[in-house]
Design a protein around this nucleic acid. Structure first.
Length: 463
RNA sequence: GGCCGGAUGGCAGAGUGGUGAUGCAGAGGACUGCAAAUCCUCGUACAGCGGUUCGAUUCCGCUUCCGGCCUCCA
């Protein structure tokens, strides 16, 4: 099965062919660690997590290298640390730990390498020196700037001419710039700002150079996929291309650029000033991470996604349905020896078509319908396996179905099951009023009972 | 102003030049002591206007509306 990805560089869906199928390389722009991740960050990292999982499935677990950086030097970090009156290192350490917790809760696998900008200053300085030597950068008033005019291909990703970039007149026009479009590779630090010694004095890197230096350090000059949010196309990724190709004598940088579209909240752009800024942490207090993840995957990554309570509610219902199907009885022979490739194929095909997660989810639902309809344990087992594996490709359905279905009420399983036993006895003696009273009492605390044809009773939590 | 995306039934959301998406919600039925779950059946959906075509929701053009980027941003 072949993977097709929409490439922002060519504006077309293309067949994915890695440079080296034994080492498929992907770089994704990671977080700037000054604040908790919001749900929009969550979308981006969940999307690339699905791509990572799919690549691992297609090329083998040990043949994919996923690098996601951590930006731990940046002026917003300095400002936040100052506002909190704490050392920068304390802020970044705390934020990184929180970020990892949030990603784990959303079911995102850790990347293979998580490089930190502050640990790659030497590589950045070396790359800047190469750019100066090659005539693509220049020093001016203790700054080093990239000379945009020296790169004839500048603008290829965002499809902007230099005039268009300047037309907005919002580019900072510093007196030391040769060209208003030139951007900073290195800038001086005041004594209280973080800084490193360099040939241009004590200073710190500009934003864009870190990704060029870290991708080169960990993935080499040319690699397969570079991902990030749509907003990064300009200027960040445009500048990365300029830095990397110019530092590498024009050799190709990235083959497939993949960008996810934004998330809005109740049809409005998420912003702190509007008060609709949702952090992953806040959402995790309201809903299981898996439901949040499914909600994030319920729209295609290149379409806008409008976050709402209703979407989250529907995601929970979908998981109820999936997990319920996984509790139905199985065939032990199939469980040991069976294969579910045929039933899994439609799911995988949807994902291979530019990560069509909504279509893949609908195909999981079709599997559920078939599971519920069949009377054959062997057939059901195969379909259940396909459901689990399709879920795994999307980072879903990996927990014990009862853990999902019973949720927090599991802590009280003994008490609930004792009530169920009492009710069962009442039913047996046709004291239905009494049985219904027990059902109603449990229902009042959100526990739903389901009497099976074989006389047993299942229960779960309805939230 | 420049560049780039969208517009599908009550909601979410795929897809396609001519037949069914899928889920949620709703209606009816089966099953059940009652439920729940499940299954079956149902809904004259493709923003508007032109064009191409035997035929367009799908291709082309225009219009309207919505969103994003151009400044830190996933």
């Amino acid at each position: 099965m072949t993977l097709a990805l929409y490439n922002s560089l060519t504006r077309r869906k293309e067949r994915f062919e890695p440079l080296d199928p034994n080492r498929v390389r992907m770089y994704v722009c990671g977080p700037t660690v000054y604040d908790r991740a919001h749900i929009g960050n969550g979308r981006a990292f969940v999307v690339f997590d699905v791509l990572y999982r799919l690549l691992r499935d297609l090329y083998g677990k040990d043949h994919v290298c996923y690098v996601r950086n951590i930006t731990d030097v940046e002026d917003k970090i300095n400002a936040a640390a100052r506002a909190n009156n704490e050392p920068i290192s304390a802020l970044t350490a705390r934020t990184i730990a929180a970020f990892r917790d949030d990603m784990a809760a959303l079911g995102a696998l850790p990347p293979d390498i998580e490089p930190r900008a502050t640990e790659h200053i030497a590589q950045m300085i070396a790359m800047i020196e190469r750019l100066i030597a090659a005539g693509h950068a220049y020093e001016a008033e203790r700054h080093v700037l990239f000379a945009v005019a020296s790169d004839p291909h500048y603008g290829q990703l965002s499809r902007r001419s230099r005039d268009e970039m300047i037309a907005g007149a919002r580019v900072e026009v510093a007196p030391y710039k040769r060209d208003p479009a030139d951007f900073v590779l290195w800038k001086p630090s005041a004594p209280e700002e973080p800084g490193w010694d360099s040939p241009w004095g004590r200073g710190r890197p500009g934003w864009h150079i870190e990704c060029s230096a870290m991708s080169e350090a960990h993935l080499g000059e040319s690699f397969d996929i570079h991902g990030g949010g749509l907003d990064l196309i300009f200027p960040h990724h445009e500048n990365e291309i300029a830095q990397s190709t110019c530092a590498h004598d024009g050799r190709p940088f990235v083959r497939y650029w993949v960008h996810n579209v934004f998330l809005s909240v109740d049809s409005t752009k998420m912003s702190k000033s509007l008060g609709n800024f949702l952090t992953v942490r806040e959402l995790l207090d309201e809903a299981p991470g898996e439901a949040i993840r499914l909600a994030l995957l319920s729209a295609h990554y290149r379409d806008p996604l409008d976050w709402s309570e209703e979407r989250l509610r529907q995601a929970r219902r979908s998981l109820d349905r999936f997990y319920r199907a996984l509790t139905l009885s199985r065939d032990p022979v199939f469980e040991r020896f069976g294969e579910a490739e045929d039933a899994l194929r439609p799911v995988k095909e949807a994902l291979c078509d530019d990560l069509n997660t909504p279509l893949a989810l609908s195909r999981l639902h079709e599997l559920v319908g078939a599971i519920n309809r069949t009377s054959s344990d062997a057939v059901r087992s195969a379909l259940q396996r396909a459901l689990e594996e399709g879920g795994r490709l999307m980072g879903l359905l990996q927990q014990d179905p009862l853990a999902w279905l019973q949720g927090s009420a599991r802590d009280e399983a003994r008490r609930i099951e004792a009530q169920i036993a009492l009710r069962m006895a009442a039913r047996r003696e046709r004291r239905f009023a009494e049985a219904d009273k027990i059902r109603a009492a449990l229902a009042a605390e959100g526990v739903v009972l389901e009497d099976r044809p074989d006389g047993s009773t299942n229960w779960w939590r309805r939230e």
